[in-house]
Design a binder for these strands. Structure first.
Length: 106
DNA sequence: TGTATGACCCCAA
DNA sequence: GTTGGGGCCATAC
Protein backbone atom coordinates (compact mmCIF):
# COMPACT_ATOMS: atom_id res chain seq x y z
CA UNK A 1 0.00 0.00 0.00
CA UNK A 2 1.56 3.25 -1.17
CA UNK A 3 1.36 6.58 0.60
CA UNK A 4 -0.90 7.76 -2.21
CA UNK A 5 -3.21 4.85 -1.53
CA UNK A 6 -3.38 5.76 2.15
CA UNK A 7 -4.29 9.37 1.48
CA UNK A 8 -6.83 8.25 -1.08
CA UNK A 9 -8.23 5.60 1.21
CA UNK A 10 -8.74 8.01 4.10
CA UNK A 11 -10.65 10.31 1.80
CA UNK A 12 -12.78 7.45 0.48
CA UNK A 13 -13.54 6.31 4.00
CA UNK A 14 -14.91 9.74 4.84
CA UNK A 15 -17.00 9.74 1.68
CA UNK A 16 -18.45 6.28 2.25
CA UNK A 17 -19.24 6.95 5.90
CA UNK A 18 -20.99 10.15 4.85
CA UNK A 19 -23.13 7.99 2.55
CA UNK A 20 -24.58 5.79 5.29
CA UNK A 21 -28.27 6.71 5.44
CA UNK A 22 -29.87 8.15 8.54
CA UNK A 23 -31.17 5.36 10.74
CA UNK A 24 -28.80 2.72 9.30
CA UNK A 25 -25.48 1.20 10.38
CA UNK A 26 -22.48 -0.28 8.52
CA UNK A 27 -19.49 -2.31 9.71
CA UNK A 28 -15.82 -1.36 9.59
CA UNK A 29 -15.07 -4.22 7.19
CA UNK A 30 -17.98 -3.18 5.01
CA UNK A 31 -16.61 0.33 4.70
CA UNK A 32 -13.19 -1.04 3.80
CA UNK A 33 -14.67 -3.29 1.11
CA UNK A 34 -16.71 -0.48 -0.41
CA UNK A 35 -13.50 1.54 -0.65
CA UNK A 36 -11.86 -1.28 -2.57
CA UNK A 37 -9.53 -2.21 0.30
CA UNK A 38 -10.76 -5.43 1.89
CA UNK A 39 -8.96 -6.62 5.04
CA UNK A 40 -8.43 -3.03 6.12
CA UNK A 41 -11.20 -2.85 8.69
CA UNK A 42 -8.76 -1.85 11.41
CA UNK A 43 -7.57 1.03 9.27
CA UNK A 44 -11.13 2.33 9.11
CA UNK A 45 -11.27 2.36 12.89
CA UNK A 46 -7.92 4.09 13.13
CA UNK A 47 -9.08 6.73 10.65
CA UNK A 48 -12.35 7.42 12.44
CA UNK A 49 -10.48 7.74 15.71
CA UNK A 50 -8.70 10.77 14.30
CA UNK A 51 -11.89 12.66 13.53
CA UNK A 52 -12.26 15.97 15.37
CA UNK A 53 -14.78 16.17 18.17
CA UNK A 54 -17.07 18.44 16.15
CA UNK A 55 -16.98 16.44 12.93
CA UNK A 56 -20.15 16.33 10.86
CA UNK A 57 -19.38 12.79 9.73
CA UNK A 58 -21.88 10.19 11.02
CA UNK A 59 -19.13 8.06 12.58
CA UNK A 60 -21.61 6.63 15.10
CA UNK A 61 -23.26 4.62 12.29
CA UNK A 62 -20.12 2.48 12.01
CA UNK A 63 -19.98 -0.58 14.28
CA UNK A 64 -18.31 -4.00 14.14
CA UNK A 65 -19.43 -7.02 12.10
CA UNK A 66 -21.29 -8.50 15.04
CA UNK A 67 -23.50 -5.46 15.37
CA UNK A 68 -21.81 -4.26 18.53
CA UNK A 69 -20.48 -0.84 19.42
CA UNK A 70 -16.71 -1.23 19.30
CA UNK A 71 -15.76 0.90 22.29
CA UNK A 72 -14.91 -0.53 25.69
CA UNK A 73 -17.91 -1.19 27.89
CA UNK A 74 -16.98 1.45 30.44
CA UNK A 75 -15.90 4.16 28.01
CA UNK A 76 -17.49 7.54 27.65
CA UNK A 77 -17.33 7.35 23.87
CA UNK A 78 -19.42 4.19 23.86
CA UNK A 79 -22.12 5.94 25.83
CA UNK A 80 -22.07 8.85 23.40
CA UNK A 81 -22.29 6.61 20.32
CA UNK A 82 -25.24 4.67 21.70
CA UNK A 83 -26.98 7.93 22.51
CA UNK A 84 -26.54 9.22 18.97
CA UNK A 85 -27.77 5.95 17.47
CA UNK A 86 -30.92 6.01 19.57
CA UNK A 87 -31.41 9.66 18.70
CA UNK A 88 -32.04 8.63 15.09
CA UNK A 89 -34.33 5.73 15.87
CA UNK A 90 -31.87 2.83 15.98
CA UNK A 91 -32.64 0.31 18.75
CA UNK A 92 -29.56 -0.41 20.86
CA UNK A 93 -29.78 -3.00 23.61
CA UNK A 94 -26.71 -3.74 25.70
CA UNK A 95 -24.51 -2.06 23.09
CA UNK A 96 -25.88 -4.23 20.30
CA UNK A 97 -27.82 -3.39 17.14
CA UNK A 98 -29.88 -5.79 15.01
CA UNK A 99 -28.07 -5.91 11.69
CA UNK A 100 -30.97 -7.55 9.78
CA UNK A 101 -33.10 -4.65 10.92
CA UNK A 102 -30.74 -1.68 10.74
CA UNK A 103 -27.84 -2.88 8.60
CA UNK A 104 -27.13 -0.83 5.48
CA UNK A 105 -27.38 -2.58 2.10
CA UNK A 106 -25.82 -0.22 -0.52
C1' DT B 1 14.78 -4.63 12.13
C1' DG B 2 11.38 -6.22 15.97
C1' DT B 3 7.57 -5.98 18.84
C1' DA B 4 3.19 -4.41 20.62
C1' DT B 5 -1.20 -2.44 19.93
C1' DG B 6 -5.89 -1.56 18.14
C1' DA B 7 -13.29 1.98 17.26
C1' DC B 8 -11.59 -5.48 13.21
C1' DC B 9 -13.15 -10.19 11.03
C1' DC B 10 -14.06 -15.10 10.68
C1' DC B 11 -14.82 -19.72 12.04
C1' DA B 12 -14.89 -23.75 14.81
C1' DA B 13 -16.58 -25.91 19.10
C1' DG C 1 -25.75 -17.74 22.90
C1' DT C 2 -20.56 -17.74 24.08
C1' DT C 3 -15.30 -18.32 23.80
C1' DG C 4 -10.86 -18.99 21.83
C1' DG C 5 -7.65 -18.77 18.35
C1' DG C 6 -5.83 -17.32 14.06
C1' DG C 7 -5.56 -13.84 10.66
C1' DC C 8 -5.21 -9.18 9.30
C1' DC C 9 -2.49 -4.47 8.54
C1' DA C 10 -1.19 0.47 9.57
C1' DT C 11 1.12 2.91 13.53
C1' DA C 12 4.06 3.92 17.30
C1' DC C 13 8.11 3.09 19.65
Amino acid sequence: MSTEDRAHLSEMIWQVVATIPHGRVASYGQIARLCGFPRHARYVGATLKQLPEDSELPWHRVINAKGEVAFRADSEQRRRQIERLRAEGIAVSDGRVSLPEFGWQP
